[in-house]
Nucleic acid binder design. Structure first.
Lengths: 140, 140
DNA sequence: CAATTGATGTAATAACATTACATATTAAAA
DNA sequence: TTTTAATATGTAATGTTATTACATCAATTG
């Protein structure tokens, strides 16, 4: 019932999808992943979506809602303040020019949002924070 | 070249779409809006998307990225701290049970995110903050 | 008036995601 | 070990969201 604490064993399809995402330097849509895996026997979107569902559940992949795309989690394996893979919310800065995505945490942001929720009696399940704009390289 | 400061004149289609969204107590997808407006002569998705594009540009409507849906902006016409319709980022709490959406601002969150951006040389264009979970009524 | 601009109408297609159903593999219980 | 249950896989069809392309109409402006 608990989320796996360390890297869970991945099935063949999960590994293939995770590898493709890990090698990519930009987010990929499910259909782009599918195309990359045709040679590995992938034929249908569902093969990708099923693998992604598990990887999301394991916290190894994130979905970027504003892009309908996916990235491998950029965390170092485990982090100072109990982040690792069981962390609260993650924020993303997405460059609209080069596609690069930076993943970061901000405790104060987390805190402010959960304070708001507590005050309103709202029970958060998942928080999305995405900043779209231009990265330092592209802005120059 | 500037965004309109007060309510711009809306075209027929823009008014129809805005009215439908305003009357709704939950977010609506473009296709749901289309269905509501069949009797008003709407026949194609593009009629809705074009109106939504303008309403988004005017700041009268928000897109909920995690839902692929739209809501009328909930701001009182103009706000204490210069929000009105030219505000920075807006956050949403979305109830996954009843569909209700609460719109709110948090200056500290804005501040932390723009500090991060400044520090990284990232130029933000649009920020998405969406908390999905259960509202106080549904959580009870 | 001609020319430009913005709004509209319609059809077709692209992009993203899920349902349904059949089969195979793996793991656990008897 | 055999049965059973749970998980993973394969495939097709369909559903949902969004855009491209092209034609027309209306308002403005030079």
């Amino acid at each position: 019932m608990n989320a796996p604490v360390s890297a869970p064993a991945l099935t063949k399809n999960q590994s293939l999808v995770f590898d493709v995402l890990t090698r990519s330097d930009a987010p990929m849509s499910a259909y782009t992943i599918l195309d990359k895996l045709r040679d590995n026997g992938f034929r249908a979107p569902l093969q990708v979506y099923r693998a992604l569902d598990k990887l999301l559940e394991f916290g190894m992949v994130h979905r970027l809602e504003s892009l309908n795309a996916f990235v491998a989690c950029a965390h170092p394996e485990s982090e100072c303040c109990g982040h690792g893979h069981g962390h609260g919310s993650v924020a993303f800065a997405i460059c609209e020019s080069c596609g690069h995505v930076s993943e970061f945490h901000d405790h104060e942001v987390d805190h402010r949002l959960s304070d708001w929720a507590k005050h309103k009696g709202f029970k958060p399940a998942k928080t999305t924070i995405e900043i779209r704009g231009l990265c330092s390289v592209c802005a120059a």
